[in-house]
């Protein structure tokens, strides 16, 4: 069986190996997945227009301070207490007169809004068509949410006023904001479990949208305090 020549090295599969490697690197190397927390800043107002007056009872004050200290409505609290406190205030089940106002959604108002939006859409110009269509969809979704959640569709008038002192750490601030957002998610999830029998992660986009209407996030970031 002695051969004169050794067989030629088969290079045909080299490309396959190369591609395999390429895919391996692509899959395993994490391209630093960045996630973000979105925030809309308030518009800069000129001095002539006074800021909108908010009823004192509707404001929930949270404050991040130096050394990871947190304050909730003037009282010192720890980070893991915040969530429950916020949920309690937003729900305001005992109708405490010092806590944010809670109103059951008004069917007539919802229908009114649909009618207005429909009319707007008919008279709309091409440029505004998209935004008007979106508004109408939102109004209709609101009606659907009302039908689904009924008396649980309460709109809270609360505003969470997120403040920080000059010397507070950014991580403290982000953790606090994170807790606030988690409070909303838990509220939404609880209602979803009650009415739909599913948790937040098992909902479709429309259902999530409806729950976001019921518990609308309202966090305002104030400038630093001394």
């Amino acid at each position: 069986m002695g051969r004169r020549q050794s067989p030629e090295v088969n290079a045909g599969s080299m490309a396959d190996i190369a591609f395999l490697l390429l895919i391996f690197f692509l899959v395993t190397s994490e391209m630093s997945k960045e996630a973000g927390m979105f925030q809309l800043l308030p518009e800069k107002t000129t001095d002539s227009t006074p800021p909108k007056k908010i009823n004192e009872r509707n404001i929930i004050n949270v404050l991040a301070r130096e050394n990871d200290e947190l304050m909730f409505d003037g009282e010192s609290v720890s980070l893991n207490q915040i969530k429950e406190l916020i949920k309690e205030r937003i729900l305001n089940e005992g109708n405490n007169s010092n806590w944010p106002e809670n109103k059951v959604a008004d069917l007539n108002k919802i229908k009114e809004r649909i009618a207005i939006n429909r009319k707007n859409l008919e008279e709309t110009t091409i440029e505004k068509q998209v935004s008007n269509e979106r508004k109408l969809k939102k109004a209709e979704l609101r009606l659907k949410a009302f039908e689904l959640f009924g008396n649980d569709f309460k709109t809270s008038e609360h505003v969470i006023n997120l403040q920080a002192t000059q010397g507070a750490d950014y991580q403290t601030y982000i953790s606090l904001k994170d807790e606030l957002k988690q409070a909303y998610t838990e509220l939404r999830s609880e209602l979803a479990k009650k009415k739909l029998g599913r948790g937040w992660n098992d909902l479709n986009l429309e259902e999530k949208g409806m729950l976001k209407m019921v518990y609308k996030e309202n966090i305002s970031e104030a400038p630093v305090v001394q």
Binding site: A35, M37, F38, L40, P42, E43, I174, P223
Partner: peptide
């Protein structure tokens, strides 16, 4: 943030590790 408000860039996103 105040500079951003002055510059009318109101949409901000705090980048965090998930």
């Amino acid at each position: 943030k105040e500079e951003l408000r002055d510059g009318a860039a109101l949409k901000i996103n705090y980048i965090v590790n998930e």
